[in-house]
């Protein structure tokens, strides 16, 4: 085994052929109680690179659970277990014994439902991911902070107060800061777990606009309760119900003419 390099340059990461999916989930079953009951059952889907993929479904359908499987955030739960199947990201089985979750998470970033900047300065929030990788060079950090804030469409609003507390920002700004913090480590994939559920419509629109822009550099997987949001931001949509993947297709099709009745009932707001 070679030493893992500290820098996370996307170019350095193994690249995938353009037609190959960046995430391939194959017959995945997942349990929160050591396999007694499966929260996710036999999920198979392939997520294309450079696209926005939305996971929709009623509460408790497993969409957030699946999202958290993708960067192994479920490792935090002692009794969580992948019971069958595998998840390959960039061609590598991420649950293989020689995969380090910490390294995986540098390639697969995550933005959370409740914006959660650290009670530090704006600058330190964005630099956090690089600092934990041991980067101390002020020049590199400065550049990364500016770049990430630019990309997160926040630079103009905060460039004069990088040293003030992140908690002084508005909710929408805090969430964009969290996005900046996530993309500062240059992940290949950005997972978003209901990123707008705590935001007002204007802030939501800003984030959605940002997602459209980030799509150029990152593969985005977004969990959302807001179906209009899924139609607005995503290229492909997966509909989950009771831990199973019901339908996965182009967003246009899922919301225009889904082939499975359950999907149609859910997206058009009928009794399920």
């Amino acid at each position: 085994m070679t030493e893992t390099s500290v820098t996370t340059d996307p170019a350095a990461a193994p690249s995938v052929a353009s037609n190959e999916p960046i995430i391939a989930i194959d017959d995945l079953s997942f349990s929160y109680d050591l396999g007694k009951t499966n929260t996710l059952r036999n999920i198979s889907l392939e997520i294309p690179a450079g696209k926005v993929t939305a996971f929709i479904g009623p509460s408790g359908c497993g969409k957030s659970t699946l999202l958290r499987c993708l960067n192994r955030m479920n490792d935090l739960v002692d009794t969580a277990k992948v019971t069958t199947g595998r998840i390959s990201i960039l061609g590598q089985d991420i649950n293989a014994p020689d995969v380090e979750a910490i390294e995986l998470r540098k390639h697969v970033g995550m933005v959370f439902q409740k914006y959660n900047p650290f009670p530090k300065s704006i600058y330190e929030n964005v630099a956090y991911g690089l600092r934990v990788q041991g980067i101390k060079n002020k020049g590199i950090l400065d550049q990364a902070v500016e770049e990430s804030l630019q990309k997160a469409a926040l630079w103009g609003e905060v460039k004069d107060r990088l040293d003030s507390s992140a908690l002084g920002l508005s909710g929408g700004q805090q969430q964009r800061l969290c996005i900046a913090r996530t993309i500062a480590v240059k992940p290949r994939i950005v997972l978003m777990d209901e990123p707008c559920s705590a935001l007002d419509p204007i802030a939501t629109a800003r984030i959605e606009e940002l997602i459209a822009e980030l799509q150029e550099d990152f593969t985005i997987v977004i969990v959302t309760h807001n179906m209009q949001q899924a139609t607005r931001v995503s290229d492909r949509t997966a509909f989950f119900y009771l831990g199973e993947l019901i339908e996965y297709d182009e967003t246009q099709i899922i919301f225009g003419n889904p082939s499975i009745k359950q999907t149609e009932d859910y997206v058009s707001g009928r009794f399920g």
Partner: peptide, 13 residues
């Protein structure tokens, strides 16, 4: 919990 999750998601040990 968000602080822990955010930190770990950024690749912290």
């Amino acid at each position: 919990k968000g602080f822990r999750e955010a930190s770990l998601a950024l690749g912290a040990t």
